[in-house]
Design a protein around this nucleic acid. Structure first.
Ligand SMILES: NC(=O)c1ccc[n+]([C@@H]2O[C@H](COP(=O)([O-])OP(=O)(O)OC[C@H]3O[C@@H](n4cnc5c(N)ncnc54)[C@H](O)[C@@H]3O)[C@@H](O)[C@H]2O)c1
Ligand SMILES: NC(=O)c1ccc[n+]([C@@H]2O[C@H](COP(=O)([O-])OP(=O)(O)OC[C@H]3O[C@@H](n4cnc5c(N)ncnc54)[C@H](O)[C@@H]3O)[C@@H](O)[C@H]2O)c1
Lengths: 225, 225
DNA sequence: CTCGGTTTGTTCTCGCGTTCACAAACTCCT
DNA sequence: AGGAGTTTGTGAACGCGAGAACAAACCGAG
């Protein structure tokens, strides 16, 4: 897990509760589980059912939800759609967030083509690549544009979230410019450590690391056989 | 993070140490940092340098490394290549792991084309897809084959690790078959919770969840401004 | 050989996260 | 209305992880 703990309480009157980071990481899972349940026609669910759908302990689920408020009914459970809305609101995905993707190679194209973002609160407003040869292309109905356009795009669309899918060597530079132009959250797919100011959030997705963790346990299993 | 804690000590004579899960998750980062340092010609590095390259606290790094053994020299630091080898050996990536990818759509193709796996201890031995229309295709020099071939492939290549890049609805079924045929580690990209037996490890990569976590913090920043 | 400077390995403490267990609260049936 | 059954919300206990701090160990100069 990232070295990031409970968000320090900000001095705003509303939404005073600060939610533990571990809980924040699970809220999207609950949201997805609730959506599935809702689509299956379940209008009410107990913490036990929802926990099973989300793959967690029911006590943990209840404690997590208790940070948001008291949205259940004892003896009954939770109203599926109501809870779903409350979680979506807490996460902040009741409205769409504009997102820009930089590096439209193998991975960047797959991301651009992914329909799941839109339905989960995100909208890809631009695809950027440094390679002029790519600027002819249209991916997922969106023009691939030069990286230089980043500043204008961030300004015009009030983009706060950027996705980096460039080679590792370019990633730090891309991140620096994103930060300079006002992006404050970065999702990084390049296998490299990004240095950014404190107020900028970075989350990384590193497939090789995931596989290596699996390999470690796999080796363990083999050794004990 | 997954609900998975320190691996219970297995009763094997060798490699008796069991490494905390949090440390296991960081070892690949150290490995990558060491590779970078080595390529830059650094033959020795202190815990401070390596920690900076890996983006962690130096005390944490030293504690992590101490689980592997005592591979440093006080007053000097660590031999880059020697430590790199020791970590690779501990993770189990001194030899290649055969991997099969199921679901060769947008994402599966990007994964198949990704060269970083090979260099980090993994070898894609097969690409499988249920759609007959794809069986004509060759992706990254590998034939796309029918999903039915899974059993034979797992047997022939002794595959222990499987990657799921199918739609969410198909993922559980794919996982069930993988497990039935002997796969014991799964990397899941489909946005769904997989139910598998205890002895099977599952790690998930869910981009929407990552973005939603960023959105939450982003909303917080906006609220405090 | 000794001493000062450097860096590791480890101990200790603190805080977060998970889980248990139960009182409070609600529904439904009689 | 009352009681049995159900389920939430939370207090408390416990274990793991993070980081500070320091003694032990090593190097090199003199
Ligand atoms: N493909 C995968 O499945 C996969 C898996 C794991 C990690 N990754 C990582 O994701 C990143 C992208 O992988 P990929 O396979 O798509 O690589 P790729 O080479 O196919 O694409 C990289 C793209 O980034 C562009 N680019 C390079 N420098 C740039 C810059 N400074 N600014 C803007 N654009 C720039 C290139 O023109 C290219 O289009 C890499 O860091 C890779 O290690 C990819
Ligand atoms: N593309 C992305 O960037 C992205 C991002 C996040 C998550 N995901 C997830 O990754 C998964 C794949 O995404 P995608 O964009 O590549 O989808 P896709 O539709 O392009 O590809 C899915 C592939 O799986 C194959 N398939 C379907 N059922 C199968 C089965 N039972 N057995 C074997 N193969 C089967 C299909 O034929 C298709 O080729 C989805 O679950 C998606 O939600 C993708």
């Amino acid at each position: 897990m990232e070295t990031r703990h409970a968000v320090t309480a900000r001095t705003s009157p509303e939404s005073a509760r600060d939610i533990p980071e571990a809980t924040v990481a699970r809220l999207p899972i609950y949201l997805r589980a609730l959506t599935t349940l809702s689509e299956q026609g379940t209008s009410t669910c107990s913490s036990e059912e929802l926990a099973a759908a989300a793959g967690v302990n029911s006590a943990k689920l209840r404690k997590d939800l208790s940070y948001l408020g008291s949205y259940g009914t004892r003896g009954v459970g939770y109203d599926t759609d109501y809870l779903r809305y409350q979680i979506a609101r807490e996460i902040g995905v009741t409205q769409d967030w504009p997102v820009v993707i930089v590096g439209i190679g193998n991975l960047g194209q797959a991301l651009a083509n992914y329909s799941g973002f839109r339905s989960r609160g995100f909208r890809v407003v631009a695809l950027l690549d440094a390679d002029p040869a790519r600027h002819e292309e249209v991916v997922a109905g969106i023009d691939v544009r030069p990286f230089d356009h980043l500043e204008k795009i961030v300004r015009d669309h009030a983009v706060a979230i950027g996705v980096i899918a460039t080679p590792a060597l370019a990633a730090q530079d891309v991140a620096d410019r994103m930060v300079a132009f006002g992006i404050t959250s970065i999702l990084n797919f390049a296998p490299t450590v990004l240095n950014v100011p404190d107020q900028v959030d970075v989350r990384k997705v590193d497939l090789s690391i995931e596989l290596q963790i699996l390999a470690y346990h796999e080796q363990r299993k083999a050794a004990s056989a």
